[in-house]
Nucleic acid binder design. Structure first.
Lengths: 96, 96
DNA sequence: CTCAAATATTAACATATTATAATCTGTTAA
DNA sequence: TTAACAGATTATAATATGTTAATATTTGAG
């Protein structure tokens, strides 16, 4: 791969890293590793305000890291990409 | 590990992610994967200005991701932590 | 000693991010 | 249809980050 391609990749990958580069958002990803969850569940698990949780989720979804599905009154969020899952596992392996 | 500990970890790890969450800095880490390099070498490889390169290096060093040693006129930068190396490898494996 | 190369620092400015609080929207059940 | 819950959106102020250009520092060569 040449420099131009690497540069392009680095922008995309850096974007993912940047999105993960926030304690709240990282915690959310962490909490989603085992199973999909509703906003309220995430709120409680991560001890964050409703507004923040919602905003973090929005950003994570916009960056393509998580998916959402509606289940009546609830919104279920889950990790979208297998690579994010692998990355999170690696992080846990290295730092936990 | 309890939530409080996880929260603390997430701050530290998020900080690393955040530091890596920039195309220029990520590119630098990438370029350092195979061998330590001088500022000028990095500048040329990554096609970045001298000032930016120096600033990115400073930030990477402050975040504990890289090390520097002086070799006369030159400053050699290298990846500091084996975990960063593993993380970068994982990124390359997943996204390159 | 002095010059040029290598690197670092600073200043100025624009842009992005975050936290918080308030408000809005959608859905279910009584 | 309304109360109450789940979630999203918006506004705003504080803070952080990034870019660029200019200037400073350090060091080896001659």
């Amino acid at each position: 791969m040449n420099l131009k391609q690497i540069k392009k990749k680095s922008i995309d990958v850096a974007d993912i890293m940047k999105t993960m580069g926030h304690p709240g958002r990282l915690l959310i990803l962490c909490s989603l590793l085992d199973s999909k969850k509703t906003v309220t569940e995430i709120e409680e698990i991560c001890e964050m305000s409703q507004s923040q949780t919602s905003q973090y989720l929005k950003r994570l979804e916009a960056a393509g890291l998580i998916d959402s599905e509606k289940d009546g009154k609830f919104h279920l969020y889950s990790i979208k990409d297998q690579r994010i899952r692998e990355l999170m596992s690696k992080l846990q392996e290295l730092y936990c």
